[in-house]
Amino acid sequence: MNEELRDQLGRLDPMHPGVPVESAATTSSRARMEQIMNTPLIDKEDSLTTSIPQSSTIGERRRRNWMLLGGVAAAAVIAVGGAVIVGNRGGDGDTQIAAGPPLELSLGDSGVMSSCIMFDVAFLANMSPAFAGTATSVDGEVVTLTVDRWYAGGDAASVVLSGAAGSPALIDGFEFVAGQQYLITAAEGTVNFCGYSGPATPELTAAFEAAFAG
């Protein structure tokens, strides 16, 4: 039954082996790979000062997405519980942590960054809110962090991250673990991924320090 069923199901495959796809050996595939391999790596020191290649089609697409994000973000940085300073940008130093309701951010609707812009500290500097926080609880789709430091855009003592229905607290290759520190940025109430949020590695911490240095 097993292999017969598998075979029958395979015949419903719209991309069965008879359907051609682009080979990795074509010129355009090689160009795509070359472009990706020229992408700055977040864990390399020189990525902090590397800008997006102007001739990159990937870069252009990502820049457009970022501009879309920027356009709406300017009008729509969401203040939840009155704890967010709207429109705050990097470069104005740390914000004090205040008592008050927690800031609520979404993990699930991260599509705004679905097409990853290449990591660039200049972009990071414009992200708000941005903070360092330690995960105090990870409960299914809900992660609660105690804020250790605000870099921009808030003063709440804690932040609650909520995933979309059915999604675990595991996105963009990292998992939230209680007790671990994270560096988080968000736009429009949604956490940015693609390297702009993640565990507080020395590299990401250095990037946040560089981006939000007074």
Partner: peptide, 20 residues
């Protein structure tokens, strides 16, 4: 697994951009 996450983000992004 990477592709699955990219696809999930893409779907959410498509819906969100349309809403925007």
């Amino acid at each position: 697994g990477v592709a699955k996450r990219c696809l999930a983000n893409h779907r959410r992004g498509s819906q969100r951009r349309l809403r925007l």
